[in-house]
């Protein structure tokens, strides 16, 4: 099952790396936490959740383009994690594992009637999205420009076919390199590179003259 056997990385919100997580050696706090997560200790689950919820939700949001769907996907991801907690490897960073689960959940959702139906009714200018996507700058003009730019990018991204969108999100938003994208998507390294290249070309075509 692709959703088990987490590779690496301890950062909560972005780049899973190849290396083992810092301090994940025997007896490290990280490893101890994962051991307790395996035992479904509520406190450890809480810490685990706080550490990774933004990673999962952010990725789902970028993939699905809608808050409600992203919440649904995040719920599904943590449900799967809870069910598979006893198979968690404390020696490995769970972040890539979570990225894989989230990607698979989003792809399942894409292929479901629920996603197609919601996309028909959804508007990418979700006001709740604008609120959550605040840049935090104290500059309304720059915020407005940034918000418009984000909206354009997100709208163009949502128009891409599912495989291309996944490649862009994992590479540019999530920060995975092509080899990691290939692992998450279970495709060859070269295929991941070509897919990303095609995705970038398609996105560039859609955004030409608008950025």
């Amino acid at each position: 099952m692709p959703e088990t056997g987490p590779p690496s990385q301890s950062s909560a919100s972005s780049v899973p790396s190849e290396e083992s997580p810092a301090g994940a050696g025997s007896g490290s706090p990280e490893r101890e936490l994962l051991e307790r997560v395996r035992a479904r200790d509520p406190e450890a689950l809480g810490q685990f959740y706080e550490r990774y919820v933004d990673l999962v939700f952010g990725l789902a949001w970028r993939m699905l383009g809608e808050r409600v769907l992203a919440e649904d996907a995040a719920s599904d991801v943590f449900l799967k994690v809870h069910r598979a907690a006893d198979r968690l490897d404390p020696a490995r960073d769970p972040a890539p594992w979570l990225v894989t689960i989230t990607t698979n959940v989003c792809r399942d959702l894409w292929r479901s009637g629920a996603y197609r139906m919601s996309r028909r009714a959804a508007d990418v200018d979700d006001p709740a999205a604008a609120a959550v996507l605040s840049t935090g700058r104290n500059d309304p003009e720059q915020d407005a420009i940034g918000s418009e730019r984000e909206r354009l990018v997100q709208a163009a991204l949502l128009e891409l076919p599912e495989p291309l969108r996944t490649a862009i999100v994992l590479h540019d938003y999530q920060g995975l390199d092509h080899r990691q994208v290939a692992e998450v998507l279970h495709i060859a390294h070269d295929a991941a590179r070509k897919r990303y290249s095609r995705a970038l070309t398609a996105l560039e075509h859609k955004l030409r003259g608008r950025l």
Partner: peptide
């Protein structure tokens, strides 16, 4: 433009509910 996009964060109420469930 893609990389510069801000990180979306879940709604606090949803975040708390899902944590409770998890």
């Amino acid at each position: 433009a893609v990389a510069a996009r801000t990180h979306a964060r879940p709604d606090p109420a949803f975040r708390a509910r899902l944590k409770q469930e998890f």
